[in-house]
Amino acid sequence: MPVEIWITYILILMIIASIAALEIEDVLSSIVAIGVVGLGVSLCFLFLQAPDLAIVQFLFEIFALIILVKAFLGKEYHKTESTKLNIILTIVTIITLTSILIFSVSVFDLLPDFGKPYMNTAQYYLDNGARETGAANLVSSVILDYRAYDTLGEITVLFTSILGALSILRIRSQMKKENSESQNA
């Protein structure tokens, strides 16, 4: 079977799973459904000849699932019953998004066909990458040699976001500690 048909099937599965993830009430089920979407993306990367990305997406999906399950499972919280305003908002949103989809279909005609990209800059990397950097993996030579500056910025973003998450969590645990100490005293 050609690649396009495989990807069509996987994308349909992913759309169904993402709608399920948003509409199911149970928290664990919706987290598992989002896992289906992420692993579908990983499978698509494998079909599109990007094994680097498939490995990274697979591992990060597992990690995100563990974070979500650890943070949200077992929290008892009260379901919000949907008001009239909420139902109207949902209907209006669905109508608007559907009309956006219908009007934007003709835009996709302007894009290059699937499997025939316009490629100018990257041809240089393919021709000279192995000779200039000495790396057999050309993706690796792009991220760490030609565009290492991008990677530096990306490490900074990762560092900052993790630091933000840590500062939020650490304030909380310190408050807990102080509370328990004052109760003991």
Binding site: P51, D52, A54, I55, V56, L59, F60, I62, F63, G134, A135, A136, N137, V139, S140, S141, I143, L144
Partner: peptide, 21 residues
């Protein structure tokens, strides 16, 4: 995976996540 990042699929990001896991 970390050490063979320039020869085969993988690299620092994937290997780092495996170590964390």
């Amino acid at each position: 995976i970390v050490f063979h990042g320039h020869l085969s699929p993988g690299g620092g990001f994937a290997g780092g996540v495996i170590i964390a896991l």
